[in-house]
């Protein structure tokens, strides 16, 4: 029973972190219509930033700054926002597809830096000993899990409220107007490019924050955590939840993560161990097909406001 409670807290924490990433994506895509295929890259930037700034000194890489966790999270959000703003600056005055291609490239390069710049990122071995909130509770597994869940839930809640507020503010209205009818909005004197860069940067900041929160939740990061599959999962979450809705983003994250974990342990239970890698790839096929089917038949998602685009 205790185990189950602990696992429930762990599962919810993981799902909520995905929800946080999906919230960032919803600002970029749902509200502004910017297509980001490099989510994993931005999450990784946040995770590595905070990890490097907060970890104790390590022999073979820069570090030893020993910042408090909260300062690391803030820095992660700011650094990721800068990276996103630069990506947006380079591409958003051009065709919309160029942003997609460039974010794809960002993810590739971040992965490469994480793997090869050993002096900065620890290379394939990653960064360990990332301070965890409430580390003093670690002996009491359940209390520790729930304390972490509380931290993560409050971060998600705060971000949710801030984003809700933001999307109702004049700033959010401009973004929606730009998405619906760019010509009319620019005719009213709103600079499409500048607003889009802002939205992309703020969405990036949320993704970076999510990466940092996840890094401190697990306590260890490595390049393998940030493969294209992550990008893909978050997209599936937002599409299931319904793009444009912050509530949908979080609900979609929980549902898709439950399906992902559930089908994972299901195949692990029935498929012989030598075929497990194959079964895992079938899981991705299923999600890919699902994403396409949603695009075809239910583009507004399942939990969204149902508002027609």
């Amino acid at each position: 029973m205790i185990d189950l409670l602990g696992y429930g807290a762990f599962f919810t924490s993981t799902a909520l972190i995905f929800g946080l990433i999906a919230l960032g994506l919803n600002l970029q895509w749902g509200l502004t219509g910017l297509f980001n295929v490099g989510i994993a890259g931005f999450v990784a930037i946040g995770a590595y930033s905070s990890a490097i700034l907060t970890t104790p000194d390590a022999a073979d890489r820069v570090g030893g700054f020993g910042w408090p966790i909260l300062a690391g999270w803030l820095a992660a959000a700011c650094i990721t926002a800068l990276a996103a703003a630069f990506t947006g600056y380079a591409t958003l005055r051009l065709k919309s597809d160029y942003l997609a291609i460039t974010t794809f490239g960002v993810a590739v390069v971040v992965q490469l830096v994480a793997l090869n710049a050993q002096g900065l990122t620890g290379g394939p071995f990653g960064v360990a000993f990332i301070p965890r909130p409430f580390a003093s509770l670690q002996e009491h597994a359940v209390a520790f899990n729930f304390a972490n869940l509380a931290v993560i839930a409050s971060v998600v809640l705060a971000t949710y409220l801030a984003l809700e507020r933001l999307s109702r503010s004049p700033w959010g209205r401009v973004l929606r107007a730009l998405r619906e009818d760019e010509r009319a909005a620019t005719a009213l004197g709103k600079s499409a490019q500048s607003y889009r860069i802002q939205a992309f940067a703020v969405g990036g900041a949320v993704m970076g924050l999510a990466g940092a929160v996840q890094a401190h939740f697990i306590g260890f990061i490595a390049p393998d955590n940030y493969l294209p599959t992550l990008t893909f999962q978050v997209w599936a979450m937002l599409m299931v939840g319904g793009s444009g809705s912050n509530r949908g983003a979080i609900l979609g994250a929980i549902v898709v993560w439950a399906i992902w974990v559930g089908s994972g342990s299901f195949t692990a239970a029935i498929v012989p161990s030598d075929l497990q890698a194959r079964a895992a790839s079938l899981q991705i096929v299923a999600i890919g097909v699902m994403l396409c089917l949603i695009l075809l038949w239910r583009p507004q998602g399942f939990f969204g406001a149902g508002r027609k685009k």
């Binding site: 893909f232 096929v285 396409c292 695009l295």
Partner: peptide, 26 residues
């Protein structure tokens, strides 16, 4: 909406690639 088509191609790409991994292993 051309960007939706881009997104669909992204989903299809993931599915196609993983299908190959399923059939032929990585």
């Amino acid at each position: 909406q051309s960007i939706i088509v881009v997104m669909a191609s992204f989903g299809a790409s993931m599915a196609l690639r993983s299908l190959l991994e399923f059939m032929f292993t990585s």
